[in-house]
Design a protein around this nucleic acid. Sequence first.
DNA 1: TTAAATTTGTATCATTTGTTACAATTTAAG
DNA 2: CTTAAATTGTAACAAATGATACAAATTTAA
Lengths: 225, 225
Amino acid sequence: MNNTVNTLLGSELFNGISEKELIRLLDTNNYKENNYKKGEILAQQHEVCNRLIILIKGSVRAEMINDGGKVIKVEDIKSPNPLAIMFLFGKKNRFPVEVTANEDCETLIISKKTLLSLFQDNKQLLQNFLDISSDYATRLSSKLTFLSFKTIRQKLAGYLLDLSMGESMFDLDRSQNDLAEYFGVTRPSLSRELAKMQQDGLIEISRKKVTLIDKEGLLNLVVRV
Amino acid sequence: MNNTVNTLLGSELFNGISEKELIRLLDTNNYKENNYKKGEILAQQHEVCNRLIILIKGSVRAEMINDGGKVIKVEDIKSPNPLAIMFLFGKKNRFPVEVTANEDCETLIISKKTLLSLFQDNKQLLQNFLDISSDYATRLSSKLTFLSFKTIRQKLAGYLLDLSMGESMFDLDRSQNDLAEYFGVTRPSLSRELAKMQQDGLIEISRKKVTLIDKEGLLNLVVRV
DNA sequence: TTAAATTTGTATCATTTGTTACAATTTAAG
DNA sequence: CTTAAATTGTAACAAATGATACAAATTTAA
């Protein structure tokens, strides 16, 4: 339990909340601590999501299983993080995925009702929750921006301009492999496009070091007419 | 003002809140009513987003303007809806876009601080806000799912299976034009792929009427191995 | 009802991207 | 330091998609 409190204090959701206050919140309200062995299922797909599950220790995977029993999508979530923060509210508040323990896990479970009470009880907690949700949605939105560019060159232009923060020289924050996956393209295609953009005098690149040469040209790529 | 109250009562954010309670909330707290003429700017790009703007009447457009003064992205928002609900919280709480009135507009403006107080004052309002945020993020997430499929055929398979809700026959909910834009592909390419999928015995399609013929085959398209 | 506007079907050719394979380089592990 | 693993650079060919254009079908408005 002490361990749990310390873990929570270090998590984003309880950021800025004192140890005393956290203990008070947890004591005066209902919550459960559940442990899961490797392979156990934390949440079934399509099950109503009426509780916040906070991963204290371990990691889980989220899989979408379709009628044929095949896995569609996999996501890994590590502690200390809340699961399915997105699906606790909204019209369709059901788990879109099956959540399985990758290893032995410890979790803290707070019912939706309790959580709403906690929000009214503690402004900081509410604001943290809103911040986390908002950041999550912002990440999704920003990813959508890049994906909605049609060509790899456009995606790269948008990504690099965004990453540059106004600077001309900077380092890539992902490997080409990761970036290709993020864009939903193949790694050789991405690598080739980087080489082409260098040939065309838009950028210079060597491993992770990037220099923007023709900013105007890059900007033109991401302009919608 | 009476008009404002009625509009708000019919909006998602104040859904389930009684007229009396709404008047109480608005009376006991600070808010502003601002009107904008066509062409006026409601919010500058990069400006700190520290207030919720609710569009009571009219419509606005959101545009991303880059260094070169060119428009990157356009989104239209109609009343009665809150603007920038996503950017009120989170680390990067600045407007990512410039918001301009498409026509004469009426707005209700509530500061972030006041909004947080309202949330503590009224559980229903908080839950509505969380629901709206969650639904928004769910839509983004679901769009990302389709976009992350590489081929148009995969995107279509995912989209159609999702839309079918288990039924074999149903109607498309968008025109091919809209669907192509949603996927980020060209309309002829989408149309061609639909025709090919029909040739290959996966579906039958005539205008908006769709019949899923080979569900197993469609499922296989969206499975990640 | 008729004309205009929108949506859909389809074809051709250019361009982009995927697939596969392999070598060079860098990083991590022992 | 040495070897293995991961990352990056490229190449050749196949496949998918874009761009453009035009006709047919359908819907909307007058």
